[in-house]
Amino acid sequence: MRPMQAFVETACRFACEVSVWVVDKQPVNGKSMWGLLGLGAEQGMKIVIETTGDGATEALKALAEIVERAYDKEPEPRA
């Protein structure tokens, strides 16, 4: 749950709107733990983060960093 917690806490620090998309689902509010939990996003899944409004660029950078840091280690291909 921890990376998600960090994601929401960071998103809430910015004034802009944050939405998160995955394939085949409605976008959810990136400032909402419930929303993100409901996405069922897991490692290896592609997600799109969209920010609009005040501080959108900075927010996007910070959020992308959290996602990358949490999931940067790709699972090794199985022999």
Binding site: M1, Q5, V8, V28, N29, K31, S32, M33, W34
Partner: peptide, 18 residues
């Protein structure tokens, strides 16, 4: 930290809206 997550879930804007 488990309860920090609880606080975050309670404060959640989507939850309030719903």
């Amino acid at each position: 930290a488990i309860f920090a997550a609880h606080a975050l879930l309670i404060d959640d804007p989507e939850l309030v809206r719903e």
